[in-house]
Design a protein around this nucleic acid. Structure first.
Lengths: 208, 208
DNA sequence: TGATGTGAATAATTTCACAGCA
DNA sequence: TGCTGTGAAATTATTCACATCA
């Protein structure tokens, strides 16, 4: 069913569509067209159709896409259906706290199950419903909870070390917020999110 | 001097190199080679050379790149030299606070000059050396300070409104952390940073 | 030997344009 | 008319391969 060559960027955009549609579902609309999705998500309509077509035929010619079933399909493609992905958060500083309080995860099948910090004042406390444990117990707890996704929100200098502990505990993929390249086995999937890198290139584009 | 067709992705990577080199400068190394930069930044060495070659010849054949002068050149290309870019932050929640406490901006020519929030408990306080003002004063203050870059770290439902106020105050480009597409004049440069979008596509790649 | 710089080749991605349908 | 789905075309981006130099 799936085409053999699917751009990574297309998969990434499916997530954007999903998020956009989740918002749209709240309204009473039943169908949505590719120009509408495009407008909503800031993406070219032909691109929207092409992205979806890599995975199947979800639209009805002349009508558009049935929103509810498109959402279901997108979740299925992205493996976000039936099971909640448990995540482990390392570092409960400002950024970590922002992630803990972010309400958008649950809707799409994710949950931060446990969090870790080394600050005694935080250890044992509960933050947005998530208990914070001592870093030292990370390996044990991640293993027990059978968690596959780790979030790194610690300062750059500790990121590599934390990532290695996560992986030795069974984590298969990492969402890394530390501004540093992690050196990890190639089978581990790392997604880097850098809060300031986009910023550095702004002046270049401003000055054109 | 500049080639006419420069990939956007190349500009973005220059920022990555710059950040990497800033870290390297601390060591006593004088020269760095493209394979080293590549290793450090997680990018192919040929790509590193190609990216740099769009903007000039910064290396010495056989020796590599003189780190200090490469940093200078990168800053020049990215327009990060001689002047500090003043920024205005909207929203001092967890994420806003994380940005305020982030120390990496100053090194590369940025400074958060003022911040805004609507929470009375925060207004008037100073956070990481930055004073927090009432949202209502945003227009007046941004204009007075002549700020060109705005950071949006407010909840999604307020992002559009805040962005419009910023722009009417003279802001030319926006770093948007709210998970929503801003509808703004095309001359305004918008960079979106989404904390959770990368996450949504992880399970897809895990399951391959 | 081990660098850079760079045209050329390749690959990846996006956009076009239109057949076919409601 | 306005939509989807999709090959084909166009564009954009990456990687190769090598001349040249220290």
């Amino acid at each position: 069913m799936y085409k053999n060559k699917i751009p990574k960027a297309s998969v990434y955009r499916l997530a954007i569509y999903l998020r956009g549609l989740e918002k749209l579902k709240i309204n009473k609309k039943i169908y949505v067209s590719s120009p509408e999705v495009g407008k909503f998500c800031g993406i070219d309509p032909a691109q929207v159709r092409k992205d979806l077509s890599y995975f199947g035929q979800f639209g009805e010619v002349g009508k558009g896409y049935h929103i509810k079933s498109l959402v279901t399909n997108l979740k299925k493609i992205l493996k976000l259906h039936h099971k909640k992905w448990k995540m482990s958060l390392a570092g409960v500083g400002n950024l970590g706290a922002a992630l803990l309080s972010y309400k958008g995860f649950e809707n799409v099948g994710f949950i931060i199950q446990v969090a870790f910090d080394k600050d005694c004042k935080k250890i044992g406390r509960v933050f947005s419903g998530v208990k914070i444990y001592d870093f030292k117990k990370m390996k044990e707890i991640i293993r027990k909870e059978n968690i596959r996704i780790g979030i790194i929100a610690v300062p750059a200098e500790f990121a590599q070390e934390v990532a290695e502990i996560m992986i030795s505990s069974g984590v298969k993929s990492i969402l890394n917020f530390a501004p540093v390249i992690l050196n990890l086995p190639s089978k581990i999937i790392v997604s880097n999110v850098d809060l300031s890198n986009e910023l550095l290139s702004l002046p270049y584009f401003i000055s054109k």
